[in-house]
Design a protein around this nucleic acid. Structure first.
Lengths: 344, 344
DNA sequence: CTGAAAGCGCTAACAA
DNA sequence: TTGTTAGCGCTTTCAG
């Protein structure tokens, strides 16, 4: 409340204030504050002292306008409550740490229209790069990405064309591999449980890949169940009960994410179902929550942190490949069979 | 890659480009694009058409510098993986939705130094307001907040003095109430399990309040255990086992968050411990994951979404109180006894 | 309803 | 090593 001290004035402090207080020209003050160019130690001290004393905070808006450089990287993701995306963010932050770049997050709630709006808003701040989840965008959003004039990295998914660079895994392949492992383990009557969201393209691709994998063995999904909203763990239970009531002969349940898979696992154990003997289970993502469950749910690691790191490296111009854009990085998720798939 | 179309040029499009393309002055183009001032329908159409055609994205940096207004609200939180903070973010986003303001997140990883740095960075973009978790800051950070010249809302906690406004719950009180409920239910030999982080002031305050509540009944904590890092669910299990091995006579375990509490619950159930008869359990936060567990863990709702909403309302100048800063909003968490505290 | 001029606070480029 | 001069792209203000 106080607004006291030397800063009690309309508007924030400017370089000029520091310049006057230190008796050094604005330009030199600017240099000191940016550690640019040669400045004598004496002057440097004077300036720093004055700036500190006044409590000067540089105006990056003006700086950015003048220098045409913005140390921001826009990161556009569907959700923060998904658990997966905060991990991607960690990877990005880690990699950006000592580059001087700062991530700025925008959340779309899996809505293409929100994505378009968020992207527009971000680009209007002229960031140094954009990292955006997914390969599917509205035409307008795609056009913006196309014309952004800065590195654009589409992450999470590599099943499709990308605007500039992409880093992710093939969700089709992930589904396919899981299906093969399941078939190999001898399961034959398989159900799928997932999200209802039509905009969750990656979950959709996993299911498609999964079905393709089953098809190789002449199998088809025997049942499906979808949910939206609410506690995923609870939904996992409920869906599992629903499905097994409807299709009691199933011997495997493939969940589109670990959280509902965990719910299903708990339900099966409580109901005395022999897992993985009578019933096999698998999820997707490799979240660390699984480590605390009574049994380790089979899953497939989605390489989230690594995806974040690699994407950030590209934006920061530090990609190990040395390329400057137009990169396509496909990471390989590892199957973690856990305790819920029979050993072959 | 392509950089094709009318935008294939160095640097991004400017108002001038739209002006030239539409034959309307820059000033009027600006008015159209901001819906400001009266513009004839004909002119408006021409401008919009040209802007759309070119793919013009306004430069907010220049706009902000000229207008001295930035539609950004800085939000500074300790972590994104904590589950709690994404929910606060949702509350903030919801409330800001139709205000024209946009939240920008900064993450501190519970480090005061990081907080200071993140705050500095944010303020250098001259946001319209700041929402920051916690009441404890470095002196420099406190000074920056003090002199920010915009609304500052400290959230999550109200146990202490705040710079401008604050919205949260009393964690001391939360701990106190929980202790009373536990004592009332007849438990007497109580252990505490929590995070090791010395910078988690709210967890610390809950523990202090909890001990004060026990003291009212002439009780003391009989044992404590702390963790850091790793899967919280798993840590909850491990700590529970450790503690019950060390102090087998305990009859209640109070966890500093729901996730480790859930781990503890699972461990107890698997080990045939009668919950809540032989052993009572409680966590904190009221996360919806609890709904999917075999038994409902006792917890206390931390009002996260509401905290986000109220804080955002203050920043947006929409607070129901009509005050302009200097507000102190204490929310009241509700105790949810679940199935892990004996009925009285 | 539309336009011209001035300048937001800073930095690039050049001069001293 | 330091200072001066021009803007960055937009909006404010004021004049038509």
């Amino acid at each position: 409340m106080s607004r006291s001290g030397p800063e009690a004035r309309r508007g924030a402090l400017t370089l000029r204030d520091v310049s006057e207080a230190s008796g050094v020209s604005e330009m030199t003050v600017s240099r000191v504050l940016r550690n640019r160019g040669d400045v004598s130690e004496a002057t440097r001290e004077k300036v720093l002292e004055a700036a500190r004393h006044l409590g000067y905070v540089p105006n990056k808006i003006a700086g950015a306008l003048a220098s045409q450089r913005v140390n921001l990287v826009g990161v556009i993701i569907p959700s923060l409550s998904n658990l997966v995306f905060p991990e991607v963010m960690s990877g990005i932050s880690e990699e950006l740490e000592d580059t001087g770049l700062q991530p700025v997050v925008g959340v779309t709630n899996y809505s293409p229209e929100r994505e378009e709006a968020v992207l527009y808003e971000m680009l209007s701040w002229r960031p140094s790069g954009v990292i955006i989840a997914g390969l599917e965008h509205t035409p307008a959003a795609a056009a913006m990405l196309e014309n952004a004039g800065v590195p654009v990295v589409e992450i999470m998914d590599v099943d499709g064309p990308c605007v500039d660079s992409c880093v992710g895994i093939s969700h089709k392949r992930a589904g396919l591999e899981m299906a093969r492992a399941i078939v190999r383990a001898g399961y034959r009557r398989i159900g799928f449980l997932g999200t209802k969201m039509p905009e969750d393209h990656r979950a959709r691709k996993r299911m498609e890949g999964f079905e393709a994998g089953l098809a190789e063995a002449g199998l088809e999904l025997e049942d499906r169940e979808f949910y939206s909203g609410g506690s995923a763990l609870k939904k996992g239970r409920e869906m599992t009960e629903t499905m097994l009531t409807r299709s009691p002969k199933l011997d495997f349940l493939y969940y589109s994410n670990d959280m509902i898979g965990a719910g299903g696992l708990l339900w099966c154990l409580e109901n005395g179902i022999d897992v993985p003997g009578r019933m096999g289970l698998a999820g997707f993502n490799g979240v660390d929550l699984l480590e605390g469950l009574p049994r380790r749910l089979a899953t497939m690691d989605s390489c989230r942190r690594e995806i974040g790191r690699r994407a950030a490296a590209i934006v920061a111009g530090r990609s190990p490949t040395g390329l400057v854009g137009g990169e396509r990085v496909e990471l390989t998720p590892t199957l973690e069979p856990g305790d819920t798939i029979r050993a072959v």
